[in-house]
């Protein structure tokens, strides 16, 4: 019933768009979220840059953005997106909103994983006269690398989910493919094809993430 000689290439290009959106968002939200997460962690009480006001301020922003459902954040950010990206439509507009939405989730994941670092190793580094900036980059982050990789893997899946939602506002990608060609035309086969591709994608990401974490954690 479906003509896959037409749909096939469309699915492929939708996959390409999804991969592009997820990859760029992962990079941007990953880096920004890392900074915010490290900021949350080091300013906590008893940590190397303890600062209550700064910690509370970051905490407030994170808690403000995090509970907003992504589909609403996407719409609410519209004007800002237009100012920054120049348009509210397409993959780049979606990337902007996804980055904002994901970076605060990343921040929490990073903060939580860094809290698993033994304060003793930080103290050991301090006793050697290592600067606080160096302690973050050469002790805290390497010691938490295994859990961080797993956290980021979890994040990729969340971002893939976000990218599908962004399809609803014309961002393209697998979400758009499933909604426009499947759901709206009552064509379950097309919807399920998109779902299948997403499932395979997620499985691959999880597999790679688990392997990397296992190597880092040596177990």
């Amino acid at each position: 019933m479906n003509d896959w000689t037409v749909l096939g290439p469309e699915l492929l290009s939708a996959l390409g768009q999804t991969l592009y959106m997820v990859a760029v968002t992962l990079l941007l939200a990953g880096l920004l979220g890392l900074l915010v997460g490290v900021g949350l962690y080091v300013t906590r009480r008893g940590n190397i840059l303890e600062h209550r006001a700064v910690h509370e301020a970051i905490n407030l922003v994170v808690n403000f953005v995090r509970p907003i459902p992504f589909i609403i954040l996407l719409a609410a950010l519209g004007p800002v997106t237009e100012d920054v990206v120049g348009t509210r439509l397409g993959p780049n507009a979606a990337i902007f909103a996804m980055t904002i939405g994901a970076m605060f989730a990343v921040a929490r994941i990073v903060e939580q994983n860094l809290m698993s670092v033994d304060p003793g190793v930080v103290e050991a580094a301090r006793s050697m006269g290592v600067s606080r900036g160096r302690i973050i980059t050469t002790v805290i982050l390497p010691e938490a690398l295994g859990p961080l990789v797993l956290g980021y893997t979890f994040l990729v899946i969340g971002i893939t989910d976000m990218s599908a939602m962004a399809g609803a506002i014309g961002a393209g990608g697998l979400g758009d493919f499933a909604l426009r060609l499947g759901y709206q035309r009552f064509n379950d086969e097309v919807t399920w094809a998109a779902v299948a591709v997403i499932v395979v994608l997620v499985q691959l990401v999880q597999l790679v993430g688990n392997r990397m974490a296992r190597r880092i954690l040596r177990r």
Partner: peptide, 8 residues
């Protein structure tokens, strides 16, 4: 507790 770096 020795406080060795487990990543090294």
């Amino acid at each position: 507790q020795f406080n060795l770096f487990t990543s090294r």
